[in-house]
């Protein structure tokens, strides 16, 4: 594995209106890691993820993404570079076409005409082959989220960004989606950035963890360090569930 980091953030601040929602002096993400971003709601986790997905640019500071010896930002990334990333959102918004067409959408955008096999394989992975012709409005919440996961995985992204992918799902779907994430990481060395408020999920999946509180980076460390010997008392408080905010 190369030693060059995938993301480098320096003095990144994001501001919505008059409110600073994110203020990170420094953060790097290494290639091939599963980074969990944890924290209570409103901590800036999703904002950080949107920056990393190149969906928005920081108000101040710099976030660089290193792709194929190039360093790009939200403003400079080409469409081909953007297409190395894929993101799954907490509340999936699907197209009003059948499940198969939804999963195929990203490939069609890329002009890949012979993606049927990949689409079928992705449907198989999320156990939705039997619903391939179903319309999204007939699906359950868990099934919709699996469609959203499949439409991202089918793209074989270099970086997979997940924003609370299992919030409000039942244990069966949580387990299924978590196993897909794990599989994607071990089989393809995909870099995965997972935003979650669920520390148990972070513990199950992450190789490294970052805690955000009110837009500030409180602690950053390997999963072991983070869970077993947190340096910051606020991390310990957050882990024990007695965090007040």
């Amino acid at each position: 594995m190369t030693s060059a980091p995938l993301y480098t953030l320096r003095d990144v601040r994001q501001v919505y209106g008059a409110r600073t929602v994110l203020d990170i002096p420094a953060l790097t993400v290494q290639r091939g890691e599963v980074l969990a971003v944890v924290g209570p709601s409103g901590a800036g986790k999703s904002t950080l993820l949107r920056l990393m997905a190149l969906l928005e640019a920081p108000a101040q500071g710099e976030m660089l993404l290193h792709l194929n010896d190039e360093r790009v930002t939200a403003e400079t990334a080409s469409i081909a570079q953007r297409r190395l990333l894929a993101m799954v959102f907490q509340r999936p918004a699907l197209l009003s076409r059948n499940v198969r067409a939804n999963v195929a959408y990203g490939l069609r955008l890329r002009g890949e005409r012979n993606g049927q096999k990949r689409v079928e394989a992705a449907l198989e992975r999320v156990s939705l082959t039997h619903l391939a012709n179903a319309h999204p409005r007939t699906l359950s919440g868990g099934e919709m989220q699996r469609v959203a996961v499949a439409r991202a995985l089918v793209l074989e992204p270099r970086v997979l960004l997940l924003d609370e992918p299992t919030a409000n799902l039942d244990p069966y779907n949580v387990r299924l989606i978590e196993s897909l994430i794990r599989e994607q990481h071990t089989a393809h060395e995909t870099t995965i950035i997972l935003v979650t408020h669920n520390i148990f999920q972070a513990r199950r999946l992450a190789t490294r963890v970052v805690l955000l509180l009110e837009g500030a980076l409180i602690e950053e460390g390997s999963a072991e360090e983070f869970f077993d010997s947190p340096r910051d008392p606020r991390t310990a408080a957050f882990l024990s569930g007695e965090f007040v905010y």
Partner: peptide, 15 residues
């Protein structure tokens, strides 16, 4: 149309 949809499609590589 759900505004979230366009953002999500962008995040899947749509121009």
């Amino acid at each position: 149309v759900d505004p979230a949809l366009r953002v999500q499609l962008r995040a899947l590589g749509a121009t």
